[in-house]
Design a protein around this nucleic acid. Sequence first.
DNA 1: CATGAATGAGAGTTCATTCAT
DNA 2: TATGAATGAACTCTCATTCAT
Lengths: 202, 202, 202, 202
Amino acid sequence: MGEIREPIKKNSIAKKNKIIADGFKLICKKGYHNVSCVDIAKYCRVSTGIIYQYFKDKRDIFIEGVQIYSDKIMFPLINIIKDQNINKSNLENLITKMIQETIKQNTITKKAHQELISMSCLDEEVANIFQKKELELSHQFLNILKSKEFSSQNLHEKVHLSINLINNLSHEIVYHQHECINYDIMIQETVKLIVFILKEDK
Amino acid sequence: MGEIREPIKKNSIAKKNKIIADGFKLICKKGYHNVSCVDIAKYCRVSTGIIYQYFKDKRDIFIEGVQIYSDKIMFPLINIIKDQNINKSNLENLITKMIQETIKQNTITKKAHQELISMSCLDEEVANIFQKKELELSHQFLNILKSKEFSSQNLHEKVHLSINLINNLSHEIVYHQHECINYDIMIQETVKLIVFILKEDK
Amino acid sequence: MGEIREPIKKNSIAKKNKIIADGFKLICKKGYHNVSCVDIAKYCRVSTGIIYQYFKDKRDIFIEGVQIYSDKIMFPLINIIKDQNINKSNLENLITKMIQETIKQNTITKKAHQELISMSCLDEEVANIFQKKELELSHQFLNILKSKEFSSQNLHEKVHLSINLINNLSHEIVYHQHECINYDIMIQETVKLIVFILKEDK
Amino acid sequence: MGEIREPIKKNSIAKKNKIIADGFKLICKKGYHNVSCVDIAKYCRVSTGIIYQYFKDKRDIFIEGVQIYSDKIMFPLINIIKDQNINKSNLENLITKMIQETIKQNTITKKAHQELISMSCLDEEVANIFQKKELELSHQFLNILKSKEFSSQNLHEKVHLSINLINNLSHEIVYHQHECINYDIMIQETVKLIVFILKEDK
DNA sequence: CATGAATGAGAGTTCATTCAT
DNA sequence: TATGAATGAACTCTCATTCAT
């Protein structure tokens, strides 16, 4: 196996980044197991040789892509939560809005989202990256809640649970809708649960 | 592509079933994408030829395995729920027990569970099989609750949500424990949520 | 390799003959190289095992088929020539008729004819069988001519040449018509040649 | 199926051509159906992979070989005819010479010739290539005859018939000699026929 | 630094032939 | 005798990786 080089020239750095960006895109589009390094090279319009100078293998490209690009796909809430003015009286509306926004974003990145979740089950490193990103998100959420006088015990766990509820619900709605489940009700009930858990005092 | 044959002789039927059982086991153990048909043949101690007489391809073996064996891995609650004597007063204990049992089972089948969830994101047919099995489970649960005078509205959705909460929590505990989360509290809070949602009146 | 058995029971003899007849038919239809012994067994509705009791291999079936059934396909003239009343004055008409009849028959058995010619180039035994059948035909023709006072020298060679001319012309017309050749003229010219050669005196 | 690549580098073009040349040679030697792509790769001392980068499959190699190399095998007359000084008085000698030369060449390329004729019965594309080559040859012959004041009607058909006569006779002499036929006489008679047909006036 | 042609191990698949029933 | 399930060698084709240019 050849040595992995780190590009120095501005041009080469750009090339490496292009491989990560486009390679990650291609993997998300076609599926990790349906794409070869030669495919990635072709898609990025670079030579196959260069791939092996900057990366160990296909997984290496993917991991770097996950590091950089996965938060928008896996945790769209990160970008939503900042702009919201949360307080106890509008919490219900807000949670509803967060769910809807998550569904909207997941729908847009459907194939990529699916691929990333699948890979997170197979690859510990991917799972760890997602954990870190989720931690970031839950801390943001947590800080906002604290600043707004939410004083419930175990707030970190509750926030984590809330984020899980939102993500899992959205995931189900986007990919695996069950015929006999009414998803408007599912959303309502999920909102109810999150409000209940976050508002709970002491 | 050769014709797919259905075995008639008792012996051959046993052989086909062995391929499904052992093949599914090997796939769960090593990972779908890390196992070839030749590997499966070797592991099952049959010829490669016979694989292609009974199955279209590797996926076909896997799908048949999922049909038969996945419920114990994905929905261990199916076997737990029947034996429980649920009523409004012991609900909290019961939910706790269900979570603990699920965690225990998922821990045993950890690698298989991981592989199956991953595959359900990549393969619609796998996802559909799991949906059917979950439906079965939720109907069982639902019927028990109804017989015990649980009268909450939207009970099907609530049961579905409860099962999701249990499964997702267990999944996280078994594979993706976050360092800064206290999972005893997570369990407590999840139980609280499920009790809240199921007991809710009207 | 198992021993080749010769069937004794009436029933078994019939079965062997069925394999030759249907197997030969299937090979001619699909092409020798596109048909497996298992295909033949299925087509004949017998077990694969029985094939290997009566025949060494696929080629063996084919050869026996060629022995029995190929003359109609390769030398349809055999059946035509007997019924003709040849004499010097109607020779031209007769040759024309023979050519037309050959074309007609070759058109009917087109695929089989093609396959047999192809095989005769690859397999000496097939070629030898055809030689024998052609010899038979040319002797018949020869005898008729002699009885009708055709007295040309080297008559055997001339008859052989005539048969070749007819067969090759028909073969070309049925499979490989050249765009820029007028085949009515080809037929005329061929007739002319054969009449010339056969009538030639001393 | 992978993309078929066209070599650009001088070296690679040479490699592709080597595969066609040696592959065609091997197929002619061993028979199309007795040779695998791995055999060809080994014989050409290249990897199997490269075969599938330059060719769709075995047939593709063969067809390209036929395009390039078959005229010498199938129509050796092409190279003979140019050098001859044909005129009405030496026609007989010339035709005799052409037959002898054809027999000589066919004897040299015996196995290849056999294989090519066989394949032309199984594969339309091969047959079409041969047609084109024969057309070329007959046009050459035709032009020479016309320039030498041969004025017979339907000259194209007659030339075509003559070429067929030569080729078929040679083919029979080289592979399928009949015991009871005298081939010196066959040659004499064939020459007589061709002279008759070509000299014919009006 | 960059290219892309070339490699060859290994995947999927078929089929002539055997053998337990 | 007759069956057809089973075998495994051999085929076609792919792709991660290397290397001469």
